[in-house]
Amino acid sequence: MRLAVEIASWGFMLLGSFFTLVGAFGLVRMPEVFTRMHAASVTDTLGVGFLIFGMCLQAGFGLVSLKLLFLLALFFFTAPVVTHALAQACLHEGIKPQLAEDRRGMTGARPTDPDDGRQPS
């Protein structure tokens, strides 16, 4: 039993390290800011998630695991907020994403200017 937990937490930690590295590698490799955000979100979700699950298995059932899960919840609630704010700030600043295909007018929905977060006047 002890051995199984040890092996599982090794696996989770290695997977977490792998995805963390992949996300950081993508951050360097991607060509422009919007695609870089996708790479960073691999680190923010999979990397952090697997590392925290691995540490939870090591810590056992208790306050330490609970704090780790709080940390995970914090990441899962704040990471999309930051990504969204960053994307909107980029669009507001006039940085256009390089697109292979723009389907905004093709889905039957009205193409509208994205709301940039300001109060309607």
Partner: peptide, 16 residues
């Protein structure tokens, strides 16, 4: 919107 952003590979850049 947050689920879309949280899933790697897709993100919400605007809401109207």
């Amino acid at each position: 919107a947050n689920s879309i952003t949280l899933t790697p590979g897709t993100m919400t850049v605007g809401v109207s």
